[in-house]
């Protein structure tokens, strides 16, 4: 890979300052960025490591709100929210593999917004809030298409704040090689309605399935989804599955999610 200078700030302010430089880029867990850099598909003069910033580490649970520091690893999230938000714990506990989960972070995953990543579906289905060094962004405003987010240049996700739903489930159908989602569906039932977010399938990345949300808000049962048909137009076709197959899986996984929600 191309060479760069790696700096390790210990506060958000230092990191933000470091990222003001020309051609600087944040480095969180690096589980996606480093392989990309090896292919020389990405690279900057300066990488700013976020994992040494104490205030971006860890999980705080307060009432029905979970706040996860942006540099918290998947392994930590999975362990810490197991009792409070089992669906989120299960999601974090199935990203990549154990070693990847010890490095990869929620902030990195959400900022990258890979169309097949797991976390965006949880953030969107939970109606979570993405907290940055300068503002708070609602999930519905945050994800803006494949690998695109509302983040400004140099803006850092310092935390993600999840309201805990009454029940939820994440159903992941794995792409057999990468173990990312071929399709992942996150169903979250709140007192004021149901949110369903789909990853792995949309040409524009993670999206909410509005019809399913409406149907499930009226009647939270698999039967409510049965009558729906998700059009396959804006879905991905690749060598692992057609858009039509993905549309079918979304429905199957939504039903399973409803049945298995805890």
């Amino acid at each position: 890979m191309h060479n760069f200078e790696l700096v390790k700030p210990t506060t958000v302010e230092e990191a933000v300052a470091a990222l003001q430089g020309d051609d600087a880029q944040p480095l969180s867990g690096g589980q996606t960025l480093i392989p990309t850099m090896k292919q020389r598909l990405a690279g900057s003069e300066q990488l700013v490591s976020l994992t040494g910033i104490a205030s971006m580490q860890g999980v705080t649970i307060s009432g029905s709100t979970i706040t996860i520091g942006g540099a918290t690893t998947h392994a930590t999230v999975s362990a810490e929210v197991a009792a409070t938000y089992p669906a989120l714990s299960a999601l974090a506990g199935r990203i990549g593999d154990p070693a990847v989960r010890n490095r990869g972070t929620i902030g990195g995953s959400v900022a990258n917004n890979d169309p097949a990543a797991c976390y965006p579906s949880a953030v969107l289905a939970s109606g979570a809030t993405v907290v940055t060094n300068s503002r708070e962004i609602a999930a519905d405003d945050f994800f803006q298409g494949m690998f695109a987010t509302d983040l400004e240049e140099g803006e850092i996700i310092t935390a993600v704040r999840f309201p805990v739903p009454e029940k939820a489930s994440y159903q992941k159908f794995e792409q057999p090689a990468s173990r990312f989602s071929l399709v992942g569906v996150f169903v979250a039932k709140f007192a004021d309605g149901v949110r369903v977010a789909v990853t792995g399938a949309g040409e524009d990345g993670v999206f909410r399935w509005a019809e399913a949300e409406a149907a499930l808000s009226a009647n939270f049962s698999a039967a409510a989804v049965e009558a729906l048909d998700l059009p396959s137009e804006a879905l991905i076709t690749d060598l692992h599955g057609t858009a039509e197959y993905r549309a079918h899986l979304i429905k199957v996984l939504t039903k399973r999610g409803v049945n298995e929600a805890v």
């Binding site: 790696l6 390790k8 480095l27 690096g30 589980q31 480093i34 392989p35 990488l47 490591s49 994992t51 392994a75 154990p98 070693a99 990847v100 010890n102 490095r103």
Partner: peptide
């Protein structure tokens, strides 16, 4: 104390 992939971590991060 944690298992990690040493090909996906910079040496400086292990300082």
């Amino acid at each position: 104390g944690q298992n990690v992939k040493s090909c996906t971590m910079f040496a400086i991060e292990a300082d």
